[in-house]
Amino acid sequence: MVDESDVRRIAELADVGIPAEILPTFTAQFNRILEYFDILDTLGDERTGERSLHTVLREDEVCQSLPNEAVVANAAESEDGFVKAPRVM
């Protein structure tokens, strides 16, 4: 079970805003889903199967990069070829 302050803390970690007015409903729904997940508590740790995929590697060969105009084209703001971002201080 989580409470509203837990949900707010998780939202902070995920950088997602949750408006105060929907927080109670959101928390209740969240708990119903977590309750459903509790079924996994009855599962042991033994695994009967495995995924047998392995990564295929790429050769170290240079490919065409994008022109600078294409890099900044989708950015909300840019300046002198840089992408503009919020301040970090």
């Binding site: 902070e12 997602v16 805003g17 408006p19 989708n74 909300a76 971002a85 919020p86 970090v88």
Partner: peptide, 27 residues
Amino acid sequence: ARYDGVRFGPGGESQRSWHDAFTAVRG
């Protein structure tokens, strides 16, 4: 996590601090 309004999509306000700006855009 990459949808932060910096490289694509509707931007946030770049004059806010990054954490507030990201949270606002994503919210």
